[in-house]
Structures are given as structure tokens and as C-alpha cells.
């Protein structure tokens, strides 16, 4: 309620026609604050004012997730904050996405995410998903405790550019090489870049099991994904 009032006041004081840049800045702030009501309001306003919804998403909301991602990396924000920001982001996306022409987006890549079998620890993966969504990736989330065959089927069906595997347990991490092996057997290994992460995973382990990339945390994972996509485009 308080948020709504301040939002109305804001509009009264500053007039209806904020500049686009201002609106983007507001969206950014709302995501950073994890204020989902304000995010929805601002997204609706953007549509009303005829602002390009794709720009509103990328230059407004996504920028907010970037800031949160950096802050997490530096120990200034924590998981509760990122979860709330993600919630706000998805609120704005709900409003804006139906109005975005897919061709405008120049989506940079398709990413398939999942936590491997035996592991239900999906907070890390969920944070990653929101960061990837904000980065404009087309993200398909298989959830947690995902069996090797489910990864296999989804890869065949969805043809992602990147497969992102997460594990928190030493028992479940041993499922990762099996998934990569399955891809090899099915002749799909060359079609997808595989990145792995989670507490017990290291750069060494990623290399040992034949993954293409490793990230120690969600913010880093975005950089790695972008690097892998570039590689993939060059190879194709």
C-alpha cells in the first residue's frame, strides 16, 4: 500500500510523461529494491506511454538484476535480496513480454538449466535463472532432481545452445559426467556447450568431466555463458 501511494505521488509530482530514460531508471531501482508492485506499475506505465517494451525490459529491469548480481558478488546483497529482485523482475516481464516481438529481441542464446538427479538444492539455480532471464537469454528450466534422460530428451527437443548443470552434493555431482557421456553417445555433444557449477564443483572437475565451462557462482555464470555463446557462434 505504501508503495502504491508513493508511486501515485511520484506521478503527480513529476508529471505523467517521464522521459524514457527516467522510466528505465525507475524500473532498475524497483528491481533493485525488490518491489514487485512498483515494477508491475512501471511496466504498465511503459506500455501506456508507448515505450518499446523490449528496451524497458533490457535497459530497465535487466539493469537492476545486473546491479544485484554485482552486489551479491561483492557481498553487499544476499540471497533474500536477489530472490525479491527476481520476483520483481518476473512481475515486469509478465506485463512486458506479451508485447515484445520475438524478432526484436535478438535473443542471444537458448539455455537449458537444471539441478542434477538426487539434488533438490535449487536456490543457486533459481538465482542463476533470474540473472540469465535478465540477460535476455531464452531460458528453459527443468527444475531440480532432474534425471539424465530428462536432460537428454529436452536437449533433443529444445536444441539449446547451452546446457547448465548444477549440483550441491558430492553424490549428485557424479551424475554430471553421465549426462555428458549420454550426449556423446547420442551424437549431441557438439551441438551444445555444457557449463557446470555448484558448491562441490571446481574448475579442475569441470575440465576432468569434459565440460566446456565452469562458474563458481551465478553472477560469474552469466559471463561464462556469454563467452561460450560467442565460441559457439564462431564454431558454427
Amino acid at each position: 500500500m505504501h508503495n502504491f501511494i508513493s508511486f501515485v505521488l511520484y506521478r503527480v509530482l513529476y508529471g505523467v510523461n517521464m522521459g524514457e530514460e527516467d522510466l528505465f531508471g525507475e524500473l532498475t531501482d524497483a528491481v533493485v529494491a525488490g518491489d514487485k508492485d512498483r515494477c508491475r506499475g512501471l511496466a504498465e506505465q511503459a506500455l501506456d506511454e508507448g515505450v518499446d517494451p523490449y528496451r524497458a525490459l533490457m535497459e530497465g529491469c535487466a539493469e537492476g538484476m545486473n546491479i544485484m548480481s554485482d552486489r551479491y558478488d561483492e557481498g553487499e546483497a544476499y540471497v533474500p535480496d536477489i530472490l525479491l529482485s527476481a520476483e520483481a523482475l518476473y512481475e515486469a516481464m509478465d506485463v512486458l513480454k506479451p508485447h515484445i516481438d520475438v524478432e526484436d529481441t535478438g535473443v542471444s542464446g537458448k539455455v537449458l538449466l537444471g539441478v542434477v538427479e538426487g539434488d533438490i538444492h535449487d536456490i543457486g539455480k533459481n538465482v542463476l535463472k533470474s540473472i540469465f532471464d535478465a540477460a535476455g537469454f531464452d531460458v528453459i528450466d527443468l527444475g531440480r532432481d532432474v534425471r539424465p534422460e530428462q536432460f537428454q530428451e529436452s536437449i533433443e527437443k529444445e536444441k539449446p545452445d547451452i546446457l547448465g548443470l548444477s549440483a550441491l552434493m558430492t553424490t549428485s555431482m557424479t551424475g554430471m559426467p553421465k549426462i555428458i557421456e549420454n550426449l556423446q553417445k547420442a551424437g549431441l555433444r557438439e551441438r551444445v556447450k555444457v557449463m557446470v557449477g555448484g558448491a562441490p564443483i571446481s574448475e579442475d572437475y569441470a575440465e576432468k568431466i569434459g565440460a566446456d565451462g565452469y562458474a563458481p557462482n551465478a553472477p560469474r555464470a552469466k559471463e561464462i555463458a556469454e563467452k561460450l555463446l560467442k565460441q559457439k557462434r564462431e564454431e558454427d
Binding site: E117, G118, M169, T171, T174
Partner: peptide
């Protein structure tokens, strides 16, 4: 309970 081989401990579902 971790009756599946991939599980390392009980999981709250």
C-alpha cells in the same frame, strides 16, 4: 529418504 543412488542425504520434498 535417499533410496535413489544419486541422493546423498534425505531431501525435504
Amino acid at each position: 529418504l535417499p533410496y535413489r543412488k544419486a541422493m546423498g542425504a534425505p531431501s525435504v520434498t
